[in-house]
Design a protein around this nucleic acid. Structure first.
Lengths: 257, 257
DNA sequence: GCTCGGCTTTGATCCATATCAATGCGTCAG
DNA sequence: CTGACGCATTGATATGGATCAAAGCCGAGC
């Protein structure tokens, strides 16, 4: 796997002292039950990779040589065929990128691209596999990560196949509003282009649909959302926890003895 | 979770002697590195469940009380909203059904329905969680299972979003033909209704598309496929291993010490 | 043999969403 | 100030696939 010096802005810095990397990994909530020794072992051979927005982290079809661990920023996984791309998932800290491929020495099924300037820990693939095979607590943690990612994938699929575009947008916005305690005015957290991708539609369709939200008590101008009629909004869109609830990585129980 | 006595044909039999259940589990290839003692422990509290085609194994939203393990037959996972259903995945032996939900005590995200008469091992959820938390080899095996299911999910999504209906059908058939060493005449392995579901389209669309395959060297009558022009077929449809290759559960390496 | 029910086929039509094209608008560099 | 570029909006149009409706086929049971 090559790390192309991304075009444009400052080149990526691969080198970073390992000791502080171990500390960063220890901050990860879902690694709370993993022994420090193991985390240090992972960090030993790892490097911190800082990349600007737009960088390709790996290409579809490559055999992984390291496990990329998202510490800061955002990354999207996209399926590619010729020149068209489709969004598969967007990842946030502290997700591991496609652990399934790394563990089984299988090719990555997607391309990964940084959506914003991001920091990743790159862990040697062999080191990673050995650690998972020799440390039970780590194995449980990775299982939890993989489980969360699977469930997110299922939720995405349900959202996409079960709801028309307008409902997807409405539920997305309603969830956003509710997470802000129904404040009457809030901001879109990310670019519209990315929202459209996550909701599986084109920017044009999103744009039109946002306009149509006025009928349901929501006005969107630029990146500002104003709730004009919370009741109408709730009447029109019903959140389904089996689709709309976030799917955090659960650390799970400590090792049973 | 209730197990409704399925309407129609003979009622499901839940009781089966545990000893032979342990033996059945030991046959599972991807458990090859798990100690027999652990498997026996799992089988101890488990029951063998035989269900006729059409049975609902569990309902979307239920909190799992046991881990259903498919030993024989076929099961589909479907997302439900009101009265319409969408196919999420179809499982084959020896898949575990939604291990993510069981491990994290989270609700099932889908309904599960037997597509044909099937046998499942039902393992007490607590027993299952304890075993995974106390046996590292088992934990690795479940991780491999979950990883395979994640990758299948990504492949499904790519197939659906990257290819139009005709391509999906063509690639499905081409893969089928190739797996039979390009024999000139083979049979559809499952009902068309189910193929349509797996490929994310209606039966009507599948029917029409199968007709259109005549243009590309393939004639389908009933459930019989005849290859009339292998070259034309290959010229029209290109298999992509990152979409069309099956995703078996890899047992992975034995425990590192 | 006949009839019934499930699956499939075929045809006509509809509709949600993509696509294409043009314009607008805000921001940053010079 | 002035381009110019990236993103967003708006409108017109196209189209893939769904939906609705009506036969057709075929195996199972009587």
């Amino acid at each position: 796997m090559t790390l192309p010096p991304p075009p444009g802005v400052g080149s990526s810095q691969r080198l970073a002292p390992a000791p502080q990397l171990a500390e960063m990994l220890m901050q990860i909530p879902w690694l709370c039950h993993v022994a420090n020794a193991t985390i240090e072992r992972l960090a030993q051979q790892a490097v911190l990779h800082r990349v600007p927005a737009g960088s390709i982290l790996f290409e579809q079809g490559e055999i992984p040589t390291f496990a990329p661990w998202l510490l800061h920023g955002a990354v999207e996984l996209v399926g590619v065929d010729g020149d068209n791309e489709v969004m598969i998932e967007t990842l946030q800290p502290f997700d591991l990128l496609l652990p399934a491929a790394i563990l089984n020495r299988q090719p990555f099924l997607t391309r990964a691209r940084a959506l914003e300037a991001s920091h990743l820990a790159l862990i040697q693939a062999d080191t990673f596999r050995d650690a998972v095979a020799s440390d039970h607590a780590l194995c449980l943690a990775i299982l939890a990560c993989e489980a969360a990612q699977f469930r997110r994938q299922v939720k995405l699929a349900k959202n996409l196949k079960l709801r028309p575009a307008e409902d997807r947008v409405g539920c997305y916005l309603l969830a956003l509003v509710e997470s802000h305690a129904m404040a009457t005015t809030i901001r879109l957290p990310i670019e519209k282009r990315r929202i459209a991708g996550q909701l599986g539609m084109t920017r044009e369709t999103l744009s039109r649909t946002l306009g149509a939200m006025a009928n349901y008590g929501l006005r969107i101008t630029g990146d500002t959302i104003t709730v004009t009629d919370a009741q109408a909004l709730r009447a029109r869109f019903r959140l389904d926890p089996l689709i709309d609830a976030p799917e955090p990585i659960e650390p799970g129980p400590p090792l049973a003895l």
